[in-house]
């Protein structure tokens, strides 16, 4: 039972990170119907940006306040990763509207290869470790010699995720950008007729997705303390699995899917075999796509001529 509780906490932490990335997939899919294959690599890039600012702040400027360092790194990573998200959409996806069906996906694969190798060229192929920012943990429950803990890291990750998701939900549900975004999702041409700047809305969607990926990247760096140029691929596919599982196009679905994938992965590693944890995620992806492509909360996809 204690073991289960501990794994549950670990799974939720991992799931928060997947959920944040999954939102980027699901929003982009909702609005322009493409799988943004490069999103995982944007996430990896953001972790690198966070890593470099973390080093600047701690080693060059000698800042010691953990909360301040974390906040500055988070904000800078979000801003600069958003710029990348915007630039990628502008260069690689926008010219392809109206091109043939698979063009955006192929272009996205190109961007994905470019980004991971770009980071490899400019930062080197080795793993980049950072010293842990916080080490302590809350003891939630103690039973004889087994202790269930919630580490400060995990608490920060869950709290940041919850806070940002609340802000994000407000943005999408209550602001004029959110209304425009949802309108474009329903019917892009109609939205354009009603005076919504569709191009700008799509750009902002990419910016927002990249910003949330940057949050995930910063939290990932905080949690694992190491990042390498090839770290975008597998979390990217898992987050995409989360988006599909939750129902692609649905924002709450992405978060729920992320949590479920995080929990499944953690329990699978804990109870079955850690070697096959990625196989589990890929299998879920295949099974969901084959048997219920609309996911938990998604709308069924109707094919029209």
């Amino acid at each position: 039972m204690e073991f289960f509780a501990q794994q549950f906490i670990n799974g939720l932490t991992l799931g928060s990170i997947y959920g944040l990335i999954a939102i980027g997939y699901t929003m982009v899919f909702g609005i322009i119907g493409m799988v943004n294959f490069a999103h995982g690599d944007v996430f990896m890039l953001s972790a690198f940006i966070a890593l470099i600012f973390f080093l600047i702040l701690t080693t060059w400027l000698g800042m010691t306040s953990v909360a301040l360092v974390f906040l500055i790194v988070l904000v800078l990573a979000m801003v600069l990763t958003s710029l990348w998200g915007w630039a990628v959409e502008r260069v690689a996806y926008r010219p392809l509207r109206g091109s043939f069906r698979l063009a955006p996906l192929i272009s996205a694969i190109g961007v994905s290869i470019f980004l991971s190798n770009f980071v490899q060229v400019v930062q080197g192929a080795r793993n980049k470790p950072v010293p842990p920012l916080v080490n302590d943990a809350f003891v939630l429950y103690r039973h004889e010699d087994y202790v269930v803990t919630l580490s400060y890291k995990q608490a920060i990750i869950m709290a940041t995720t919850a806070l940002l998701l609340a802000g994000f939900w407000y943005l999408v549900q209550k602001t004029s950008f959110g209304r425009a975004q949802r309108a474009c999702e329903q019917d892009r041409r109609m939205a354009a007729l009603l005076g919504i700047n569709v191009d700008r809305t799509i750009s902002l969607t990419f910016v927002l997705g990249a910003a949330l990926a940057a949050v995930a990247g910063t939290l990932y760096l905080l949690y694992y303390g190491v990042v390498s140029f090839s770290d975008g691929f597998v979390p990217g596919v898992k987050a995409f699995t989360a988006a599909v599982l939750g129902g692609i196009g649905s924002l709450p679905g992405a978060v729920i899917g992320g949590l479920i994938i995080g929990l499944i992965e953690t329990f699978w590693s804990a109870y079955f075999s850690i070697e096959y944890k990625d196989v589990a995620a890929f299998l879920i992806l295949i099974v969901v796509l084959i048997f219920k492509p609309s996911g938990i909360l998604g709308r069924p996809d109707v094919e029209k001529v």
């Binding site: 272009s107 961007v111 994905s112």
Partner: peptide, 20 residues
């Protein structure tokens, strides 16, 4: 060779944008 895959990626994007 370090830049090979970088160029692959760029070429794929350029191909889709300019000469699909």
């Amino acid at each position: 060779n370090e830049y090979r895959l970088l160029l692959f990626g760029l070429a794929m994007v350029a191909m889709m944008v300019f000469r699909p």
